[in-house]
Design a protein around this nucleic acid. Structure first.
Lengths: 113, 113
DNA sequence: CCTAACAAGTAGCGTAGCTACACATGAAGG
DNA sequence: CCTTCATGTGTAGCTACGCTACTTGTTAGG
């Protein structure tokens, strides 16, 4: 999948992944790849800056820990992040229904696929 | 709707609108606004360059005409454009399903909205 | 006359994901 | 022992693309 299409939706994906439990950056990349069956294979140069953006926005918080001599920065959702995720979900639904109206002819929004 | 999210999907929307018949730039903007119930209100600075991109790519062709003393540039889908639209539709479905896997099931475990 | 709607267009900006690096440790293999 | 790979974090610079703000021109209405 062309990952450029993610533009504007990556934050939502990161928040959604972290919703199921705190993870460190590298694990987030693997989680995205696993849960998307390999469709989403995002480079570190995309994920790390995105996580710092989310932290600066207060949507995630990070804590350092050392595992096997390696430094890990584990990210967890904040309350604000959880609220942001809800907003992102609403935005996604609107986006999906709006674009779908043009690209999914015949598929009524809300109808079971 | 935040229109920035369109990133990478605008071409598909334009092709989809032109699929139903040739239109000039201004009319395309109005068609997008109408068919999206006002959600998509795109500025000319977005549409005109996008149409020239599509023309350069060979996905649309344009013809000038004069209506009421006003110059109109009418765009119509080419065969390549029709094929491109089919590809964009496939891409959209994949994108939708991939992102949806992260953002859609979230409402299930909590409370039905 | 002046403003608003119609119609097309460009220059320059900002956001954000990508490429290509650098750096460090631990495990595996020759 | 040394190399290579997987793990793990991070930055600098590039590029794509939609947006803001502007210009040009015609017709219609107050």
């Amino acid at each position: 999948m062309k990952a450029q299409e993610l533009h504007g939706h990556l934050d939502a994906l990161l928040l959604a992944v972290l919703e199921q439990g705190a993870l460190h950056g590298y694990a987030i990349i693997e989680a995205l790849r696993a849960r998307s069956d390999g469709s989403l294979d995002l480079p570190t140069g995309t994920i790390y800056p995105a996580l710092r953006r989310l932290e600066r926005a207060g949507h995630v918080a990070s804590t350092w820990s050392t595992v096997n001599g390696r430094e890990r920065r584990t990210y967890q959702l904040t309350d604000a992040g959880r609220r942001a995720l809800a907003g992102e979900r609403a935005g996604w639904r609107e986006f999906q229904s709006t674009v779908g109206r043009f690209l999914d002819p015949g598929t009524a929004p809300g109808a079971p696929v």
